[in-house]
């Protein structure tokens, strides 16, 4: 028996919005520790890694490890039927071929349930080694989304250069070029407004705008985003989901021919 209850359906809606650009379907691996998902996009250039800890749920029970393959568009349809502040309970029997989502309104006057067929997905998992990154940048998630959106108008790729002084986002295309520099904040009123850089070595890497834009669909989940970079390894873009877990995206850098 698997049962996970979350007080506000909106959190799950935001997670779905953050991954359905990149993934059509995905396997949710459920264990006593929580729910995990690791999946690459169709082109195998980026990877989504989601972890929701069991202690972040209002109620969580997982008697046996279970992998639920789900179509994310179907799941989105179901979650669109819930109000943001509905409590959601996800339930499945052991070895079941369906999963049930139950939504309860705050005053309990409306209870709805939706049963969805599970899929058998043959998903490849990648072993991702722990890396000491040369640069770790923390910045407001909204600012990162804004910069990626702005620069995407001018080119297909964004060059991210990080030094101790700050981080620079650059692009160029048919109409010209664009640069956005962010300095590390020396003082800030609110922690979520800070730009903080931890640098061992300066790094410059180039990434496709298309994927960076998809990652920023996670912006509503967190105030801050963390970018981790080292030469010749994939970028990690991480959003912490408050009190519940994290959503990480990996993106292979572009390489000079």
């Amino acid at each position: 028996m698997f049962e996970a209850r979350l007080i506000n359906s909106v959190t799950f809606k935001k997670v779905l919005d953050a991954i359905k650009d990149l993934l059509n379907e995905a396997s949710f691996d459920c264990s006593e520790a929580g729910i995990q998902l690791q999946a690459m996009d169709n082109s195998h250039v980026s990877l989504v890694s989601l972890a929701l800890r069991s202690d972040g749920f209002d109620k969580y029970r997982c008697d046996r490890n279970l992998t639920m393959g789900m179509n994310l568009a179907s799941m989105s349809k179901i979650f669109r039927c819930s109000s943001n502040d509905d409590t959601v309970t996800i339930k499945a029997q052991d070895d079941a071929d369906t999963v049930t989502f139950m939504f309860e309104s705050k005053k309990q006057e409306k209870i709805s349930d939706y049963e969805m067929k599970l899929m058998n997905l043959d998903q490849e998992h990648l072993g991702i080694p722990d890396t000491d990154f040369s640069c770790v940048i923390r910045m407001p998630a909204g600012e990162f989304a804004r910069i990626v959106r702005d620069l995407s108008q001018f080119g297909e790729s964004i060059v991210i250069s990080c030094t101790k002084e700050g981080v620079k986002f650059s692009t160029s295309g048919d109409i010209g070029s664009a640069n956005v520099k962010l300095a590390q904040t020396s003082s800030f009123e609110k922690e979520e407004e800070a730009v903080i850089i931890e640098m061992q070595e300066p790094v410059t890497l180039t990434f496709a705008c298309q994927y960076l834009n998809s990652f920023t669909k996670a912006t509503p989940l967190a105030n801050q985003v963390q970018l981790s970079m080292s030469d010749n390894v994939p970028l990690v873009v991480e959003y912490q989901i408050p009190d519940l877990g994290h959503l990480r995206y990996y993106l292979a850098p572009k390489i000079e021919e």
Partner: peptide
């Protein structure tokens, strides 16, 4: 010219 490698150029399949 820049080339877009896949993640398998960096990570091994489990």
């Amino acid at each position: 010219v820049q080339n877009q490698p896949t993640l398998m150029n960096f990570f091994k399949k489990k």
